[in-house]
Amino acid sequence: MDVSGDWNLIILPRVINDYDLDFAKEVMSLPEGKTMIQCYQCSYCTASCPVHNYWDERYNSRHFIHLARLGLIDELQKRADVMWRCVSCHKCTHRCPKGVLVEEVLKAILKTMAKKGLIDEYPSKKFDKFFTESVLEYGRIEDGELLFGWIEKQGYNVVKDPILKKPIPFLGETPEWLKQLVMKPIKSMNISFLVLNAKHMLFHPRTKNWNKFKQVLRKVVQEEGGLT
């Protein structure tokens, strides 16, 4: 214990007024965010996190939970550019000794921030919405449409076919990484496989009897306000 009296010289006292205790309550009212209360800040999640270890040290799941519970919204907002970087590897949730669903809690924090308008729309959210729209519409997703539709949304000039208005792969502007990623495996694929995928791109695979269920889903999504 420090008894020299120098302690106060090192750490200046500070007063925080603008904290929001309701924020944590709101996070914990979500079914995914319920377990946030159990966290005892051991930092096992952060130590396991690949985003923290290999990408940016500012991504610190333990700290996000700490800030959310204290209600320090401005501190969370300062980290808004890294908060969405979760890769959903679930090491944090798996290894948590207190049974906190860390990955889900972090997503619940983000959700609550978005709901309150405390954070701008972040890139991963845009893709999540795009994906969910596709699921709601057809019941199933189609990889080609998802990929090239997303490329189109990113502002690339995609060539579309005149009848069905769907993007044709590789005819228009395509990012270099995608060419490298897709062209190599395509060369070694057999023709029936390519025909199947082309067919799926033109005629989206659908779930039968989907309409009634779709309406219920849309209603639920609207209640939660996820797509707005």
Partner: peptide, 9 residues
Amino acid sequence: ESKNVTFMG
């Protein structure tokens, strides 16, 4: 993806 948009959905 969709679990980040809608829990119940």
